[in-house]
Design a protein around this nucleic acid. Structure first.
Lengths: 245, 245
DNA sequence: TTATTATTGTATCATTATGTTACAATAATA
DNA sequence: TATTATTGTAACATAATGATACAATAATAA
């Protein structure tokens, strides 16, 4: 979880929020052939964390998760997936939160609701990197993209959460066909393949990849072609709207 | 969630448990070529529910879920899988709980912790039907197997939870190779196939099914053969212990 | 003892999917 | 106009899956 605007006004009882439940969001982006994750840095503490939040008493869980992601990215209608609930007692560690609050002028009592044990519901989000404007939620934090391979040390078990999100993404990539949610609306098959290769961390054979993607019948070839390279221009594609079940 | 022994002693504040979080367990069994689910019936109310429980402040989430399932089945080391968190506000409905409590002599105030909103973490469990002894958790409930196709109406969104568990099971059946956890230790390929057909609700071709199962290299053929039918005796198999990753 | 019955284990072939190599087409640049 | 890098796709090889066929055989009944 993360401290955000809404939490600042909360009393030590955290009135208005469900107790003991937090949301942590692993927001994935793709840029320069690298998977990126949005991370929060708390000023004057050197502490890094996943974006997160809590659930208002009258809100849906999934709505609350969407709000966390919207706040940080500035986007609506983002692809979100619950992937795991982190509920080990051992993950309970109030020290980083205490440090963050202290660094910002408050001296919370140990009974402060933010220092209690939370069970955290993990979501991952897939966003178009080019459309995101990473937004801090308060004056005392900042929000930036980090290379998945060059992440700083994160508080609590957040590093583990990121890795679990990645393996959920890998499993769902072929099943739910969600890869393109990390790409701009129009893309080439080469770009799509590099995305798959980055996520799965292995080389794929181009003819087989193209044949498979096209046979799925979810891609629409656009008249326009990509330009810029000193070679044959590839077609541009976009994803067809799918019939929902 | 369900009321169980532990909850009976709790005050209206539910001291000792994490607030707003419940666990609901869909315990699957397989018998007579039918998928079965363990359901709780609350005496004198006509109300049916999934087995469930809450998380003690010092316990792991997964441990708490295992306890729920162990209590109801009498078994240890059960296969358990988190499959979804149900967190819509609309699922909040304290009336059945109130009815249950009233039917058992208490008249809880509206602020009673059991009548508050809960987010429910859904688990499904796969058990060997022949080894289970369904156990009520208190004098005012009972616990029985029900045919998945002949379930009574369940309280709150529990019917939806069962169906979501089933679709998670279907998806994981091939991926995680967990089907045999619903069978006794020794079984024939025919029994395994009927299990698959029941879960997936479609006929499978026998030669293809057998070839696939055997090629996975997870089955160990036992010397002994099955006896009883007026036909060629099939081999018995058991699942090999797998190397964990 | 022998025929009958139902079901098993597996061979065989057909079809489809996937892995791999090859090569002509071509946009930008030199 | 040649060069370069990359694309689209054909072609073939291999592997996986779908489908049919049939001999083997445990229990039962004649």
């Amino acid at each position: 979880m993360t401290i955000n605007k809404a939490n600042e006004v909360s009393s030590i009882y955290g009135d208005g929020f469900l107790k003991n439940i937090a949301i942590d969001a692993v927001i994935f982006g793709f840029h320069d052939n690298q998977l990126k994750v949005l991370l929060i840095e708390y000023k004057r503490t050197g502490l890094f964390a996943l974006p997160g939040g809590f659930i208002r008493e009258g809100d849906d869980l999934n709505t609350a998760a969407m709000q966390v992601v919207s706040e940080r990215t500035g986007l609506q209608d983002i692809y979100l997936d619950q992937f795991y609930v982190f509920g080990d007692y051992a993950r309970f560690d109030p020290t980083p939160l205490k440090t963050i609050m202290t660094a910002n002028g408050s001296t919370p009592p140990d009974e402060h609701w933010l220092l209690k044990r939370f069970i955290s519901i993990g979501y991952y989000a897939l966003v178009d990197f080019t459309k995101v404007t990473p937004s801090p939620a308060a004056i005392f934090d900042s929000c930036e993209w980090y290379d998945l391979n060059k992440m700083p040390v994160l508080i609590q078990d957040h590093t583990k959460i990121v890795h679990k999100a990645l393996s959920a993404l890998r499993i769902n990539l072929d099943q739910k066909l969600i890869g393109f949610k990390l790409l701009p609306e129009e893309f080439t098959l080469g770009e799509l393949q590099r995305l798959y290769e980055t996520i799965l961390d292995k080389k794929l054979l181009r003819p087989a990849f193209q044949r498979k993607m096209l046979s799925l019948n979810i891609l629409e070839r656009i008249a326009k072609k990509w330009t810029g390279g000193a070679h044959k221009a590839p077609y541009l594609y976009r994803f067809k709207a799918q019939a929902e079940d």
